[in-house]
Design a binder for these strands. Structure first.
Length: 419
RNA sequence: GUGGGUGUAGUUCAGUGGUAGAGCGCUAGUUUGUGGUACUAGUUGUCGUGGGUUCAAAUCCCAUCAUCCACCCCA
């Protein structure tokens, strides 16, 4: 069978690339409207960046990183997410000395070592946005509204935005202690993973699917009910922004997110897919991250969306069906091998006049060339033969209507330029 | 990392112990320089890989790899 792509990777090839182009062009179009600029960071970084940035109690760092030593014995990791790299680049290039806030977007491959399944790959692609330098809750609102605008602009239905506040360094430690005190009595009834969570990161017990754990945790204290004044006000203003801009959302008081750096606003979005991998985007505020990575104390917020999942969702919702062709296609057929040179010259001339034109490169007979033109969805066929060359009169056939008109080369160009 | 399903032509799959198959696709042809339909012909396989059982294995058994699905986690 020859060599196959490594486990968990996939090729975007043939018709599929058009789906990606459609999404990507919509993304860049929207980024211009919101005035975000692209940032391109390396796909590998020092392992330490993710240990400190993402957090070493997270599953991503714990068991999903592609880490290796390079030839200089440096520990390198293929990026599992984008935020840490953006933060690192921002600090490294003293973004804090530039006008704030910094508004970035990125798009590119991410890498996580886990068992592949629907909507999940080892190399997958994320689009993400990061804004650094503003603590204003209306920024949270803007970022959320932007994310929803992306999905709705792509035509995606059944969107469900869930938001929550996970507190800040003032209120979260207190809540953590409360939670631990509450859970102490039920410790033995927790599942084994939650028992370790109890020690390392008790908030994540909210994520457990185990019924018993859910029953226990559902009676426990919720962070949202014990936020400090600052966090409470912040959360209220975020909700206000969403209400003003008609963004629908639900509050999920149990949502905690898998990355350690989140503070205050956290959110996640699904798009109606049943069960597995329904999440197509998520993010939150990370007010401590820049400082944690050695920069000044600057707040930040961002989100990432999983492009494979967007493609999947759009396929399921039938959003790729009537893709508009961007350009009309002209096929120049040659009656015999003798006319090939003339066809090539004509094609070249058409192309230099901004017309999409192609000619036979498979030595097909005339009839087969027409079949081919049909298969590749050509809109027009020009036939080049001895008589045409001699008289400078070429048949121009409209492949959709079947009509054929005759004109000279200049008229061909004039006719085709307009289409 | 845990559990389950599936590996046969480019693709979707049939074949359950006895000569390797079908649809779709692709290529060509159906006389003279014009496509979509129809008809005809052709095309690609170490039946995932390695071992075992058997006179005989695509078929049964074991292993392995790949892939898909679910859990975990996330996008």
């Amino acid at each position: 069978m020859g060599i196959k792509g490594p486990k968990g990777t996939h090729d975007i090839i043939f018709n599929d690339i058009n789906k990606w182009h459609k999404i990507e062009s919509k993304l860049t179009e929207l980024m211009k409207l919101y005035d975000y600029s692209e940032i391109r960071t390396p796909i590998f970084e020092s392992t330490e960046l993710f240990l400190r940035g993402v957090g070493d109690t997270t599953d991503i760092v714990d068991k999903e990183m592609y880490t290796f030593l390079d030839k200089g014995n440096r520990s390198i990791t293929l990026r599992p997410e984008g935020t840490a790299s953006v933060a690192r680049a921002f600090i490294e290039h003293s973004g804090y000395n530039e006008v704030l806030p910094s508004k970035f977007y990125y798009i590119g491959p991410m890498f996580r070592y886990s068992r592949p399944q629907t909507g999940r790959y080892r190399q997958f692609h994320q689009f993400g946005v990061e804004v650094i330098g503003s603590i204003n809750p209306y920024l949270d609102g803007e970022v959320l509204e932007l994310m929803m605008n992306i999905f709705t602009s792509l035509g995606i239905n059944n969107l469900n935005l869930e938001i929550n506040s996970v507190g800040c360094p003032v209120c979260r430690p207190i809540h953590k202690e409360n939670l631990k005190n509450y859970l102490k009595n039920n410790y033995n009834d927790l599942c084994p993973t939650c028992q370790t969570r109890y020690e390392k990161n008790p908030l994540r017990i909210f994520d457990c699917k185990n019924e018993k754990c859910q029953e226990i945790i559902s009676k426990g204290p919720l962070i949202t009910d014990h936020l400090c004044n600052d966090c409470n006000e912040h959360f209220d203003k975020v909700k206000n922004y969403l209400n003003m801009t008609n963004v629908e959302y639900t509050i999920n008081k149990k949502m905690v997110r898998g990355l350690d750096y989140y503070t205050k606003t956290a959110f996640e979005i699904t798009a109606g897919r049943e069960g597995a991998q329904s999440s197509i985007g998520g993010g939150g505020r990370y007010d401590g991250l820049i400082e944690e990575l050695g920069g000044p104390s600057l707040p930040g917020i961002g989100f990432a969306i999983g492009l494979e999942r967007v493609v999947l969702t759009m396929e399921e919702q039938g959003l790729f069906d009537n893709q508009l062709k961007t350009k009309e296609k002209v096929y120049v057929a040659n009656v015999s091998e003798n006319n090939l040179d003339a066809a090539v010259k004509l094609v070249s001339e058409l192309r230099h006049n901004g017309i999409l034109a192609i000619n036979d490169i498979m030595s097909r007979k005339l009839k087969a060339q027409f079949k081919y033109a049909n298969k590749i969805d050509a809109d027009y066929v020009i036939t080049v033969g001895d008589d045409e060359i001699k008289n400078n009169i070429y048949p121009l056939k409209n492949m959709n209507t079947g009509e054929q008109i005759f004109c000279n080369i200049n008229e061909l160009i004039i006719n085709l330029r307009g289409v």
